[in-house]
Design a protein around this nucleic acid. Structure first.
Lengths: 197, 197
DNA sequence: ATCTAGATTAAGAAAAGGCCTTAATCTAGA
DNA sequence: TCTAGATTAAGGCCTTTTCTTAATCTAGAT
């Protein structure tokens, strides 16, 4: 399994010696996840934070009427999971499902505790992750309340470059909070606007 | 200043002795806030977590086009502030403004550190607060993306009972992500539906 | 008490977005 | 290879929401 991607990601936030890197990678659990397989299931505690080395997953919420709503995607170089459930041990409210055959690195809670004890610098790294998640949520609320579907569509393309080609568009529509049909219309009209501006 | 409301709130989550209550209340800073006054300003670090004893405040975000979007209200028995800025010291992205003359209790960061040192039980209390904020955000995303304006309006009334009478309706509309005019229509039609169901 | 600017209601036209259906492709499994 | 089930594109029609304008209605300032 290849740890380079994750180590590079971490290197953007904290500096690690070779020895510290070794401590960290020894605690990770590599795992191959097949398409349609779940790494988090609503109702069960989320035991791992999951880093995507290859592939793509989605985190979604099932509302009271049984409809699914994609909250976030995770492609290469992203973490995913149900953060709240992981931190508290409470049952997860999200499902996280692989959309493609994927390779991930998982870190469970006791491994994380050990990591904090041996390399306290990681406290900073994971604190930044949590804060980023919090801010991203706040921005998404504002966007959902105030931006049009077309604006949200462009924001999605900025946030997840190249993901549009990889996903069935119903998943994108679910993320945007619109119907697949309307997304199809949006795309056509965006293409049209670009041809004759 | 009356600490009973806050102590009762805390009592619902952790048990405190009289002595611990005294340590806590000694660290709080009572403050009278006039209508239109700000307790958090975007751009400045948020120095305090603010508990509302009497009155009402709103936390809002100003988008790139200069439009305001109310993210949450705080009435009696609620905490408010820009949590992320408070925790990190980064400039606040939210404004928190009093909508009525209010009485609040503020806790600054060094007071919170002292509190944790002297009464570690408070770690649990504030952790629960942060988790609740996180979950509330997640639910609000789903609601904003999938629920109709009328459903969001009913959710608002459940979340903030009696607040509807106290606020100018443009603030409620901003919270719901709709125009004041449309909120007016919604209200009329809800009344109508109740008369002849 | 009077003015005036902002806040609220109202009503109709316009736009955004949803829902349903059809048809053409595109999988994935038998 | 075949077939059933997904997926996408497209069009028409309907509901929801916004926009605009105008009429009332405050509440603070003079």
């Amino acid at each position: 399994m290849d740890y380079a991607l994750l180590l590079a990601n971490i290197g953007r936030h904290i500096e690690l010696t070779k020895a510290e890197q070794a401590v960290f990678t020894a605690l990770l659990r590599p795992r191959a996840v097949r398409r349609r397989q779940y790494v988090v299931q609503a109702g069960e505690p989320c035991q791992y934070e999951t880093f995507v080395v290859r592939g793509c997953l989605r985190a979604y919420y099932v509302d009271a009427n049984g409809f699914e709503h994609n909250l976030m995607f995770a492609v290469e170089d992203w973490w995913t999971g149900d953060l709240l459930s992981f931190l508290t041990g409470a049952p997860a409210s999200l499902n996280v499902e692989a959309l493609e055959d994927s390779e991930v690195l998982q870190l469970d809670k006791s491994a994380l505790e050990q990591l904090y004890a041996q390399v306290p610098k990681f406290e900073r790294y994971f604190r930044l992750m949590i804060q980023n998640a919090f801010v991203a949520q706040q921005q998404r609320i504002v966007s959902a309340l105030s931006a049009s579907a077309e604006e949200r569509y462009h924001a999605f393309r900025r946030r997840y470059p190249a993901l549009e080609q990889r996903l069935p568009q119903r998943h994108i529509a679910s993320y945007l909070g619109i119907t697949p049909e309307f997304l199809s219309k949006l795309r056509k009209q965006v293409l049209h606007d670009k041809r004759k501006p």
